[in-house]
Amino acid sequence: MIELLLVVVGAVLAGIVQTWTAIGTRSREAESVLTALAGEVGAICRLLRMLDYRTEIQKLFRQVEMGVHEEAIYYIDIKSDYFSVYHSLSSQLGLLKPAEVTKLVRFYSYCKTFVDATRPEGVSSEMQGRLKSVTNLRALTTLHDSILCLGDEIVQLTKSPSIPDGTRV
Rank of each mutant, 00 (worst) to 15 (best):
L131Y: 07
K103T: 01
Y53G: 05
Q128C: 08
F114K: 10
I73P: 00
Y86D: 04
D116K: 11
Y74N: 07
L140Y: 02
T113M: 14
E70C: 02
T118H: 09
F61Y: 13
C111E: 02
R106Q: 14
E121Q: 14
P120R: 13
E100I: 00
S109N: 13
Y53R: 04
I57Y: 08
L89S: 01
L89M: 08
S109Y: 11
A99W: 02
F114C: 11
V64P: 00
Y53F: 06
K132S: 06
R46D: 01
N136T: 06
V115I: 14
R46P: 02
K112E: 15
L140C: 05
V68L: 15
I73M: 07
E70A: 10
C111N: 10
V134N: 00
Q63T: 06
K103E: 05
L60S: 14
A139G: 07
L51N: 03
H69P: 01
S124R: 07
F114Q: 10
V68S: 13
G129T: 03
P120Y: 12
R106E: 08
E56V: 09
Y108Q: 09
I76C: 06
K103V: 02
L104T: 13
L48V: 00
L143T: 11
L140E: 00
S90H: 09
V68T: 13
K97R: 14
T102C: 06
P120E: 09
S88T: 04
K132P: 01
D52P: 12
T141P: 00
Y53V: 06
N136S: 05
S88I: 00
